[in-house]
Design a protein around this nucleic acid. Structure first.
Lengths: 263, 263
DNA sequence: TCAAAAGTGTTTCCCATACACCCATGC
DNA sequence: GCATGGGTGTATGGGAAACACTTTTGA
């Protein structure tokens, strides 16, 4: 009998125990389940970037794909799969990982029926470069550019188009960006894209918003909503320090992680 | 070799064909995948209701559960599973079916690791009663009531509590209601709960909003946003007819289904 | 002293809310 | 007539948007 809260509860009758012992879990065919991670970050010039890996084997050999991997059955949830894979690919442990959508068309993988639970990971600026550089042929961070109906991905001189992406990953990526755009105005996602969300200036946060929303914002108005929505509500606290920079030093702030984050 | 867009594309090399022919899809263990459907509707008195079925077998025998079923591997997406199951349980074909969240804790089912993709189905008033009544022991529509930390479900004299629900279905249901509440103010979900979204009065739509948001709304203001957000944007068109009722006849409107509905 | 970035104050305008009021119908 | 629900108009306050302005630093 499997070990889980239900079977440990002591409320399982002998009849039910027998049922569970004899249950044939493999009576019906099952699909494979994977987690695919849309790892978004910003580069030095505040451009939205995505982490892609180059496929070394069939299918879609040589094409670029979202990092991901198969669920370890009986051992983890798909969220844990995603967190594990994200760490393996990028070394990033502390990222905002949110479930995006589950894709399950039977034909999305030529090998077999694969149900993919897609996640969006928001990774702080620069945190990504290091590990990706270790094995440039395998994992790279691409700057996302928008063309006439379609995206292109640039990393140095390398240019990749949407049709160079494996599986339905272009669709997944489009959905992730669209969702991020929609969420940014009412969720504190932007903080996770800061270089350091525990020591940042208002102008840095503003830059993140501007690059996601793709529009310049007014300084004064941005401050007003920042104070109202974040500082006054306690999501952000002011630090004593000031940033030593080239110009007038800016006040620094610290984002307080929200513990009771809903699923 | 599996038949899908990729393999039909003609771009598959002989080497890759051989790979796909010889691919062992069962080399690694797989989880089961199900679709669970949170079927929400309103009753005659505009109370939020949910469809539950009574489990006839182990596990959670005798407990109430969300309708659902296993994905038919290689034959359908989980969305199609959900649509199929919804039809089988309720006879409802034309409901707003939206993916809610994917639940995948290894211990959520004592039989085996089951990944459940939860969907929310919004079913027009009264459409549900008929089929559910056919086999009252199997499927029933419950009115949802909120108690001190917890829901109760009533159908006539039968009262069911959260702990009478199987698996993690209470959690799923809570998330569905929370999401509906959140979406109602910016998505046209309310129309799908109308008795007849192709012939309704403004006051009926207002009643739906009021019961989801659990607060009375101002008549004049509701009209203003209705005209601005729905009539002027073409999502709704005015009908010639007027409602023949007990009092002053009300103008009727028709909701235009949005075809390019994003996933 | 000038450029650049940080930070502040003010004006305008829109729109959500509140609320008062008129209209059409059945009884 | 009058109760009931349908439908309309208007006053008001708060907040978003626009923008002008001051302050502090490095060069």
């Amino acid at each position: 009998m499997r070990d889980c809260a239900y079977t440990r509860s002591g409320l399982v009758s002998d009849e039910e125990k027998a049922f569970l012992e004899n249950y044939n879990a493999d009576a019906y065919p099952k699909p494979s389940v994977t987690a695919d991670i849309v790892t978004l970050t910003l580069d030095e010039e505040d451009h939205l970037c995505v982490l892609l890996i180059r496929r070394k084997g069939f299918p879609y050999k040589g094409k670029w794909a979202l990092p991901g991997g198969f669920l370890a059955v009986d051992k983890e949830s798909v969220t844990e799969t995603a967190r594990r894979e994200l760490f393996e690919e990028t070394g990033v442990e502390n990222a905002a990982l949110k479930q995006l959508y589950t894709f399950s068309d039977p034909g999305r993988d030529p090998r077999m029926h694969v149900v993919s639970v897609a996640y969006t990971a928001l990774v702080p600026k620069c945190k990504l470069q290091a590990r990706a550089g270790d094995d440039a042929e395998a994992a790279m961070v691409f700057r996302i550019a928008y063309d006439i109906d379609g995206m292109t991905f640039r990393s140095g001189s390398l240019i990749v188009t949407e049709s160079d992406l494996a599986f339905d990953h272009a669709k997944i990526l489009r959905m992730a960006i669209k969702r991020l755009r929609g969420r940014i105005s009412y969720e504190p996602d932007a903080f996770w894209l800061l270089r350091d969300r525990h020591e940042f200036a208002i102008s840095e946060l503003k830059a993140v918003y501007e690059c996601i929303r793709n529009e310049k914002m007014d300084v004064g108005n941005f401050r007003k909503v920042f104070f109202r929505d974040f500082l006054n509500t306690g999501r952000v606290v002011a630090l004593e320090k000031k940033r030593a920079g080239k110009k007038k030093p800016a006040s620094l702030y610290d984002y307080i992680e929200n513990l009771q984050d809903e699923d």
